[in-house]
Design a protein around this nucleic acid. Structure first.
Lengths: 235, 235
DNA sequence: CGTGTGATTGACGCCTGTCAACGTCTGTGG
DNA sequence: CCACAGACGTTGACAGGCGTCAATCACACG
């Protein structure tokens, strides 16, 4: 248990207009503030592991987390990313199941752990908060369904283009159109659902076609229109 | 608007111990009973369509519905099935988005339509009901994530075996191990996420290997253990 | 009996996964 | 400062799974 003083109080991290916690009353905020336990994690740390019983969820103060499932012979399938302002691990609390995925740190992170009972009691007593969580869940469900359709019907090439565009939406570009997230080729492959070599080959192809530029793990999106065309943007 | 008298009142159709509605008070039950509009649908009818704005959800009194997304050149990807006791269309109500999928009748169905405001107000005021809906959503989310991993990592052969087993869990077998659901080869392909011809070939192969038996659309599961082995059951 | 939908089978070829070899970079230890 | 190990990235060769196209069959329906 690290020093909690390293982490700002909720009044700083939860006030983002995007956060689910905007629906809480001051008393409810205070409750979470009292119950939470904060911690920092280095890249590579596992926050929770598939199949384990979790007894709380995490608010992300800073950093980036990947959420993935482990499939055949240990290959990861990345399901989602979470970054500052997001929450992870709430699904299994609410469904009362074991964690259906693992969470691992991609960029050094500071997280606040909140006990599951707190979440459940808030859901039961605060209708607006409950609706907000529900909305988040339903949104994720919609995205998951879209992804199923994509992965079932699109080629690897189309999916890679789409993944690059999704990453842009999640992590933004800098002023030079450089994707503000650093992933290994293997991680990219584990999002797209393909082999590492295929990702490498297709990235080279995209680069050759002047759609993107590559600098190690830094990817520059040069021609977003063309990428959208390739990804067959029906979404 | 068909004659509502054809459809039994909630006291008959909602009492199934499985139903979400068990968490409602008698007054809340009465509210739904008053607001609902029931209807029957023939095979092939579309209940709601992807991209449309829905203003309520449906309880399934009887029949079978497929939930699917439409992908490239109109190909369906079947996301889920719903049968008696289930509810459909609630996701877009709760998330406030447009419908992300379509719902079509596979076996003649009778459904009760309940306005969205009713659902939202119940979610906001009844903590236990809210938790139950949340649990259903989270469960579906977990299943969707599993399916993403499968479809990304498994071969068509493995997925087909798995789909047959899933169908068994949803629709049961009769005393002769015949799957109690009738799907076209194309629909099977649209679950597995492959071409119709591939499904046909693999089914023949399974039949040749004495894993299943085929009689038109009736599929008999002869060797469930072997199917599980093929499906690489990690779930 | 013609028409249409669904099921089947065969031929063909490309996409993509796998295996293997090699290059690159970084950090560690001598 | 250099050597080496290890992780990651890249490229080539190769085969086979699976999608596509096309022809044929089976069956129901008006």
């Amino acid at each position: 248990m690290k020093n909690r003083d390293q982490i700002p109080g909720c009044e700083n991290c939860m006030h983002c207009a995007e956060s689910i916690f905007k629906h809480l009353s001051p008393e409810e905020h205070a409750l979470i503030e009292k119950e939470k336990v904060c911690n920092t994690y280095k890249r590579g740390s596992v926050i929770y592991h598939e199949g384990s019983r979790t007894n709380g969820f995490y608010c992300i103060n800073s950093g980036v987390i990947k959420i993935f499932k482990t499939g055949i012979d240990g290959r990861e399938q990345i399901i989602a990313f979470a970054k500052d302002g997001g929450i992870i691990g709430y699904r299994s609390i609410l469904s009362g199941e074991l964690a259906c995925s693992s969470a691992k740190v991609i960029e050094d992170a500071s997280l606040c752990f909140v006990p599951g009972e707190t979440l459940i009691s808030l859901v039961k007593t605060n209708g607006n908060f409950s609706m907000a969580i529900m909305q988040q869940t339903c949104k994720e469900l919609g995205e998951a369904n879209s992804f199923i359709t994509d992965i079932a019907q699109k080629t690897v090439r189309e999916r890679l283009a789409e993944v690059l565009l999704n990453l842009k939406d999640i992590f933004d570009l800098d002023q030079n159109n450089v994707l503000q997230i650093s992933l290994t080729r293997e991680e990219l492959a584990n999002i797209v659902g393909t082999a590492t070599e295929s990702v490498i080959r297709l990235l080279s192809e995209f680069k050759h076609d002047k759609l993107i530029d590559l600098n190690g793990r830094k990817i520059t999106l040069l021609d977003i229109k063309a990428l959208e065309k390739i990804s067959n943007a029906f979404n």
